[in-house]
């Protein structure tokens, strides 16, 4: 039994009837598991996690939920403008981001004979911008061009642009270049070849990407108001700090419904797009 346990850590050797020695394949899983456990324990101490604290105080979670629900329906009149702003911000941010991403993703895919060092450099810059969440852009922009929905829209557009370009050029790099070559041989320009031979192959994927970005943006746009970039976050911050939890409850409810409705519709359309 003890021997069996030890063999978790190093490969067993078997001697076969003909005298050959066979070694099991080395399995790193136990070592990785132990490393993960050590890191977990270390991080638990580092962040000051305490199960007793959580258990003792967890009723506050439900208490707060209780204060939020049922929500105060009358607050709808005050919040509808902010909610609308949030959706508009996500919509416009997605629209501008994806509109810009379309030509650029063709330009950046390695099918179209641009120098390799240039493509690598441009893609690297994009991946740096992609590491920052919308929130950081929103905060920076709210300082530069002032608080409001415009900063929110632009920051969503920047973020959308960086992820949509990546999704698109990866897809474009997998298309069949045969039709493109055929059009090139008829004397069409590069732009004509892309429009008529390359884009039709990724049209469905592109619209699916647009919808996907819209979904994620609606989710993330709610918080932007916290840093002054407009939308429902501004109102949420205020209502929570005044402890108007029933108002916050209504906002959460509306947000949840909006997100679920948009996600459901978008998912259905995307299913059709990918099939068609």
């Amino acid at each position: 039994m003890f021997d069996d346990l030890l063999h978790i850590f190093y490969p067993r050797e078997y001697t076969l009837g003909n005298g050959k020695v066979v070694k099991e394949k080395f399995n790193p899983a136990p070592y990785i598991t132990i490393a993960v456990i050590i890191v977990t324990v270390y991080f638990i101490n580092f962040t000051g996690l305490s199960l007793t604290k959580l258990v003792n105080r967890f009723h506050f979670f439900f208490e707060m939920l209780g204060q939020m629900f049922p929500p105060r329906w009358a607050f709808w009149a005050e919040m509808k403008k902010a909610m609308w702003d949030t959706i508009v911000m996500s919509f416009l941010g997605t629209a501008f981001g994806c509109l810009l991403a379309l030509p650029l993703s063709f330009y950046l895919s390695n099918n179209f004979k641009l120098p390799n060092w240039y493509l690598k450099g441009h893609k690297a810059v994009l991946s740096i911008f992609r590491t920052l969440p919308t929130l950081i852009y929103a905060r920076l922009l709210s300082i530069i061009i002032g608080a409001g929905t415009l900063s929110g829209t632009i920051s969503i557009a920047i973020f959308t642009y960086t992820i949509a370009v990546k999704m698109m050029y990866e897809q474009i790099e997998t298309i069949d270049m045969g039709p493109y070559e055929a059009m090139e041989s008829t004397g069409a320009t590069r732009m004509q070849c892309i429009t008529c031979a390359a884009f039709p192959q990724v049209r469905g994927f592109y619209w699916s990407t647009v919808l996907y970005c819209f979904e994620t943006n609606v989710r993330s746009a709610a918080i932007l108001g916290y840093v002054g970039a407009g939308g429902i976050g501004v109102l949420m911050n205020a209502q929570l700090s005044w402890r108007n939890y029933d108002n916050a409850g209504l906002m959460v409810l509306v947000l949840v419904i909006t997100v679920v409705v948009i996600e459901t519709i978008s998912r259905e359309i995307r299913k059709k797009l990918i099939q068609g």
Binding site: G48, R57, F61, M64, R219, L240, V252, V256, V259
Partner: peptide
Amino acid sequence: AFPSFMYAIMFVKVVGTGPFAG
């Protein structure tokens, strides 16, 4: 469906500000 920043706000209420809530 519940927005994740709402979880953050609520957990800050439960265990106080700091990485635990995170």
